[in-house]
Amino acid sequence: MNEQLKPLLEIKGLVTRFHTLDGVVKAVDGIDFEVYEGETLGLVGESGCGKSVTALSILQLLRCPPAEIMGRILFEGKNLLELDREGIRKIRGNDISMIFQEPMTSLNPVLKIGEQIAEAARTHKNMTRQEAWRWAVEMLRMVQIPGPNSRARQYPHSFSGGMRQRTMIGMSLSCNPRLILADEPTTALDVTIQAQIMSLLHRLKDEFNTAIVLITHDLGVIAEMASRVVVMYAGIVVEEAPVKEIFKDPRHPYTQGLLGSIPVIGRKRQTGRRLQEIPGIVPSPMETPSGCRFHPRCSKVMNRCCRQEPPMIRLNEHRRVSCWLEAHSTVKKSQAGGR
């Protein structure tokens, strides 16, 4: 669908490691994917799979533990990893902005809401104080905060969770970024507020043609928001596909397991009370299993899976999967074709 377009963001061989007392933690261990203009890419996985670290690596927001980021992150052809501090600062918030999960801690409690948005706008645009303030009020109006004029003068504590998240979205949009990295933007919110935020993101995306990388573990949110999906497990990409295909025909046993393990309203009558389980636990990034990282939990494990890491197999232009099962079937197919 996007092949004629140039990707907005290309991630190539990204590795993010943390050096800790107990050794090296490979949070992200060699991933590739692209984000095209105006699309919503869903980045799915469980905690510790490296999906948040990926987003933080893009903006190089990992300072606390000594992190080592390798590979290439090309934004409009420019490698972000080669930029200096000032260069990446200009990208942050201006071209790429980020929405965090926790709207409570992402706002400074001692600054007025309007001041915070104005500050973000002033750092990247040449605006006077007054212009920035008007801009801030405009942003609040855009994210549908009622009474934006008076609300801008209030402090974060008088905002509800949903309003704070909307403010954060307003802030991240204040410089018309090309790309938004949304890290679990609705996880901390109630369903009805989640619905509000999702419809807001939908509308803003259409209006500004912003690309969104939506990081979440909630497959329901993915189904409603994303156009393509990248599934991560233990620091690597295991499957990538357009959203409809991943739900209809998941290829990787992990994706299949994930889809089977979520309760779906109304499905109990057909499937009974037992949910499909993925046995075992999410592996620690300190000790990733040998061979295929999913093999200890996989229901279709073969001998080969324990020893050799499966290659990334391209099924068609839009789909790829990293699993030996597919390797075997493609080999068979090509052999069949050859005869």
């Binding site: 009805t192 507020i193 619905a195 189904a223 889809l259």
Partner: peptide, 22 residues
């Protein structure tokens, strides 16, 4: 509340009742 629950099936497009306010 029920209409707001995201359904993990991209083929289904429901009309949501989006409640206003908090």
């Amino acid at each position: 509340l029920l209409s707001a629950v995201p359904i993990p099936d991209p083929e289904i497009r429901r009309k949501k009742i989006v409640l206003q306010g908090d």
